[in-house]
Design a protein around this nucleic acid. Sequence first.
DNA 1: TATGAATACTTTAAATATAAAGTATTTTGC
DNA 2: GCAAAATACTTTATATTTAAAGTATTCATA
Lengths: 166, 166
Amino acid sequence: MSARLNKCALLDRERYSIEQKSALKLWVVLARCYDTFAQSEALRIKGYEVTPPQFGVLEALAHLGPLKMCEIAEKLLMSGANVTGVVDRLEEKGLVRRVMEADDRRTYHIHLTDSGGKLIAEIFPTHAEKIRLATRALSTKEKRTLTELLKKLGKSVQKEMRQQAA
Amino acid sequence: MSARLNKCALLDRERYSIEQKSALKLWVVLARCYDTFAQSEALRIKGYEVTPPQFGVLEALAHLGPLKMCEIAEKLLMSGANVTGVVDRLEEKGLVRRVMEADDRRTYHIHLTDSGGKLIAEIFPTHAEKIRLATRALSTKEKRTLTELLKKLGKSVQKEMRQQAA
DNA sequence: TATGAATACTTTAAATATAAAGTATTTTGC
DNA sequence: GCAAAATACTTTATATTTAAAGTATTCATA
């Protein structure tokens, strides 16, 4: 492997500072950890009739009550166009329904149907327990530290993004 | 908001243990942090002629040399079917090419073309520096701690997934 | 050496995701 | 009150993603 690396003159490791390398490393580890977690979630809800994005929408509705399309987009970090598609499929399955608002005809609220509510109530407790087990190797203190550092990193990245845009 | 939450009898917060809630919180924060980072990367390579997955493939080839399709899938945590599509589009743009192997006609290596190598050599140094800046709010020690905790969490989740499968 | 299993890649079908453009409605500013 | 801007959602086009099925080749083994 290192023999191969040495052939890459264009991207020689020595061109990069220790700071840059540790930042790149952090990004790789973050992406892999996220991916593993997402994979475990996908595995967990396999067998139910919903996909991970669909599960996310049901979960948000169960925890927060009826939401507008744009609120779902904001909570789940997805584009409005994407919410349209996911909600379409949930509606086809009879798990949610669009309910028109009286005061603003541009928008409506998405409600869980009885069967949607029943499904999420069936899945979520198991889901919460499995996530607890998945993080078991970390102590309470480590989990707290990790959560705080991730928040701090998120803010740092956002700040840099804003400066980039300006 | 809390008034709304109280209406959710099915998913009452009090049904869940402190451990479960801190694990769920960690997962939410991890997902948001990852998403922010991914978004900043997308913003950064906007303006070049490649998408984030395409950039990932070019980066892997630049750092590791020619790779087989299955090696790319493994490095970038994507399915083989997906690699086919991403490499197809890179090949159409003339940034990589498929080179047949003499010894095994099922497989081939993906090589960077001159223009592909030039593109990644142009992007990567800026990319590395931007990632360094994005993580600037964290001290060296915090970055090390965060990296280690993420690795530990990743292993924990993987272990749980294996037990789930068994 | 013949054949069945395994490997490497592609194709297909369906879901997810975004940007950009389009439609309908409401709000703002004059 | 009316035109312009803003908001909320959908549609379209394209890329990403996977699972499952298909093709070609190589390996294993009997």
